[in-house]
Each structure stands twice: as structure tokens, then as C-alpha cells.
Design a protein around this nucleic acid. Structure first.
Lengths: 81, 81
DNA sequence: TAATATTATAGCACATGTGCTATATTAAAA
DNA sequence: TTTTAATATAGCACATGTGCTATAATATTA
């Protein structure tokens, strides 16, 4: 009987992050499409992040932060459940 | 001729994050092993992150932050190159 | 309303993150 | 030094992130 490997998918943390990101993106006046285009990321990826259906990598988030011109400490300034 | 898909690997950003994380871990008095054990992550994963050989996911970082009891905005309080 | 813009879903292929295990390298202590 | 603790590296299997393309659903505006 083999032990099943389980990867982390932090639903609550990702959801909190998603909401915060969406708020900031809108405050900065970006549509998902504009953010995608200017960052070089795909639109589907932006949407997947904001609907917390995936667990994005740091590089992806760094790229978004640069495009939105928001410092990381602000992008991560929300309460982790 | 098919266009080659290239994923992002933000070497400089990941390196800056890695250094900052290592500093905080040590300041909190954790060895990699302790951090791995208490967080439930694998030791190899902790090492790979600190040597910026991988591009970790948000869930992994959230788990580390909780274990170290460090707020996200502090874990991400460094300058993104 | 209808037309348009924006956001959300879906499926495929490929790249890679992660756990696991083992070993090697480096640092610290005796 | 030698021993021991701490980090780093390696390879495999499996899960999943990402780009791409297309379509659906929802919100906004005319």
C-alpha cells in the first residue's frame, strides 16, 4: 500500500490573495486583458489566478507586480487566513 | 515552424526572495530541517527555494510564512530587481 | 433591449514544482 | 583534526502551472 503524495493547495490563502490582487488591479485601472498584454502573461492565467483555480508561482506574481507598479509588500498586505 | 512556449523563471526576483527568506528563517532560529518538519514541506524543497533553483508556488510560501509566524508583507518586504 | 467589453471556463500539450530517497558538500562543535 | 549538524544536489514519479485557442457567461454601455 503506497502512501499518497498530497501537494498543498491553500484554498483560503489563494482566495484572499486573489481578492486583494483584483482590488489593486482595478484601482490601478487595468482590465485583465491589459494586465495580460502588458505583462506578457496569458489572459487565461490572469483569470485563473483571480478566480483562485490555480496556485501561481512566484515568478508570475513578480511579473504582475512589476506591470501594475505595485510594491510586493503592498501586494501581500492582506491577512493570511 | 512552431513557436516555442517560454515560461517565466524570474532568476533575479527569486534570488532576492531567497536571500530574504533565509535571513528571516535564521533570525527566527529555524534550521531548514525544522522549518521543513514543522511546515510539512520537504527538506529538499526548502533547500531548493533558498538556492533559487525552483520557482515556488504561493501555497508553499504561505505555508512557510505561517510556520515562521512572519506576516506576508514582511516576507515580501525586499526590493524586486 | 441590443451591442460591446470584460471576465470566466474548458481542453490540450508541455514544462516544471513537489515529495521522496539517497548522497555529497559545507559548517559547526568536540 | 575528527564528529556531527546543517545545507546542497540529484533522480524519479506524479501533480499541476502555463500558454494557447476557443467559447461561454456576465457586466457595461449605447
Amino acid at each position: 500500500m503506497k502512501k499518497r503524495r498530497v501537494l498543498i493547495f491553500d484554498e483560503k490563502g489563494l482566495k484572499a490573495f486573489a481578492k486583494h490582487l483584483k482590488t489593486i488591479r482595478q484601482k490601478k485601472g487595468f482590465t485583465q486583458e491589459e494586465l495580460a498584454y502588458q505583462s506578457g502573461l496569458s489572459l487565461s492565467q490572469i483569470a485563473r489566478i483571480e478566480t483562485f483555480r490555480i496556485n501561481p508561482t512566484l515568478s508570475t506574481i513578480f511579473t504582475i507586480a512589476r506591470t501594475l507598479k505595485v510594491p510586493l509588500y503592498e501586494l501581500f498586505h492582506f491577512d493570511l487566513p
